[in-house]
Design a protein around this nucleic acid. Structure first.
Lengths: 337, 337
DNA sequence: TCGTTTCTTGGGAACGCTCCCAATTTCGGG
DNA sequence: CCCGAAATTGGGAGCGTTCCCAAGAAACGA
């Protein structure tokens, strides 16, 4: 059963002084006699006093809290980013409220409402694969609560974005595939609507172009990131008269699934099909052969997102230019391609 | 820049009525004329009114929020539990605040302070491997804020616990190993202080005893869950004059690491060393051979923990008996053992 | 010694909301 | 048409803080 909360008035009464003085002592305000301060601090400690943040926030209108909304928790990617973001935020005296949307648009909307209700000072968000209506984010604009996008961004809202050079990363991956002698390189991409997917595809095409490999739209397939469907697409590739000899996948789980399926067919990776993923998830060193993949700088993404957000929160400049930070990726060559 | 927040007074003034009426309309109180209510709701919508939860909570002294503190985010285990807990909590009208402690005692203490500061109505917690001082949890007792432990529990605090039948799970795993003809079954456990580890070890011993396999303490090693150290312990096992032919590991990441190392030595799993893990992490179907492991009922754990917590929050009974819910595990036999 | 500056303290408004109580309006039955 | 009950509304206290302002105490130079 919840007990009566100890308030500064309780302390003031017990000490026979005013709540103002208690408040001052508790907030390290200079204008308190040293002796008084000590008595107050001591009693507060003894009574297990805990400042009621609601009343504080009610006055301050700032919660020293930022929110982070991520689309899913299945890959290690987002949890890892959260860990980094949390560290950085704490460093600056901010708490982090976490929510995950289960790749579901409605849940994302609900999550942003929670953030609003919790009166976060700002929000980091990475969109679900379904999100293509942004009204729930416009609320933040209207209320003047800063947002920073990361990873899954959106162009329709003017807010800073932290992304990775997907184009370059894909380019490097495909170029590597070419350098190992692969001639027919396919690409299994995610939902066409996602910017990440668009950019990786563009990098893929560019690498082919630069190396004078004719573009073949048939070699590019899009899917909804539901791993169970990978088999369908892989079978399609294998059923082509001129089969691909390499496959650049939109992310690591997809690549890993592909490797499993290829091996189940009795074929070899990378000899029969070279496979490259994207992100360097933890699982990528577990598959056999170990996955060649494009590493994303997790730590930097998390930290940068928080930094940009706090920048916005702290400064009061109105005509603020939304910047996009593009972080470098790194090709990690292992055994799958 | 943060804009002025729209308040019920703004609405009241614009409509020439009192804030009381506005408040009533906005909280679905019956005593408001239908017409008035409509005007208010309409204007509120138009002005993008958002109820200030601080003032509400300040009055209510309840936040409709529960916290969850987990030791880490590296395995898929905790993120998955969070997803389930969040669903269940939302179902009951509660928000979930998430924090992860990085397997670090100080961070855990800080996290619980955050929960206190956010005035959560209750907290779910799974302890770090380092935690053996529980003062930060006693605060919750003193303040009458309910706690529910899950997975990594603690006996020193009287609070409901949701755990899995580790003993049974381990027993089944080892028994299976024996049934496949393994004679010298080793166990690589985690920190001796963790109850989970104790129980799994007990199940391991019991399975051996029941099958008349002499107990050999040398076959049991404890480590700090830092995967880089797995190699040391595995080498130790291999250096024994009478090498083990099977290894029951404390969790899946450990088992997977073992499999990798065994294969790197040119040995075969399960022929040279059968390996079994615990938890059925996502990665367990990625390793080769696929990992035999003891599945934990993630969904049930998350849901049960929330249920027990809300039970406590809602009821006002003082002399409440702390119950421990033990969920069943399930041995999933794959190829590693 | 006194006036003036500097410390230290207390009082009270304010934050945005809910909720109790009293005032006002509406309405139906006699 | 009047009266009491029911419906609707307004006023104001209070939730636990912070912060401004003023008052009182102490200190200090002349």
């Amino acid at each position: 059963m919840k007990k009566h909360q100890v308030t500064i008035i309780d302390i003031a009464n017990k000490l026979g002084i005013s709540k103002s003085t208690v408040s001052r002592a508790l907030t390290d305000h200079p204008n308190v006699h040293q002796q008084t301060r000590e008595r107050i601090l001591e009693l507060a400690d003894e009574l297990d006093y805990q400042r009621n943040m609601f009343s504080v926030n009610l006055i301050r209108k700032s919660t020293q809290t930022i929110g982070i909304v991520v689309p899913e928790f299945h890959r290690s990617f987002f949890p890892q980013i959260i860990v980094e973001a949390q560290k950085k935020a704490k460093e600056q005296g901010y708490n982090l409220i976490i929510a995950q949307s289960d790749e579901n648009y409605e849940t994302e909307v609900a999550n942003t409402k929670v953030m609003l209700a919790q009166q976060v000072d700002g929000m980091l968000i990475s969109l679900t694969k379904e999100t293509n209506n942004f009204d729930h984010l416009r609320q933040f604009e209207r209320k003047g609560i800063p947002i920073v996008f990361f990873n899954r961004v959106c162009d329709q809202i003017a807010a800073p974005k932290v992304i990775v050079d997907d184009y370059e990363g894909a380019y490097a991956a495909v170029e590597h595939l070419i350098s190992t002698g692969k001639k027919r390189i396919a690409h299994l991409s995610g939902p066409e609507t996602l910017t990440v997917c668009k950019n990786r595809k563009a990098g893929y095409f560019e690498a082919l172009r630069k190396n004078n490999i004719p573009k073949d739209e048939d070699l590019v397939l899009h899917y909804d990131l539901n791993l169970r469907k990978v088999e369908i697409y892989l079978n399609h590739f294998f059923s082509m008269e001129s089969k691909p000899d390499a496959l650049f996948c939109i992310n690591d789980p997809t690549a890993i699934e592909v490797i499993k399926l290829v091996k189940a067919k009795g074929l070899r990776v990378p000899e029969d099909l070279a496979v490259i993923g994207f992100s360097n998830d933890m699982a990528s060193t577990i598959v056999e052969p170990q996955l060649t993949t494009v590493e994303q700088p997790i730590k930097e993404i998390g930290e940068m997102a928080v930094t940009l957000l706090l920048d916005q929160i702290k400064r009061d400049i109105k005509d603020w230019k939304a910047q996009t930070v593009i972080l470098k990726t790194k090709l990690i060559i292992r055994d799958s391609g």
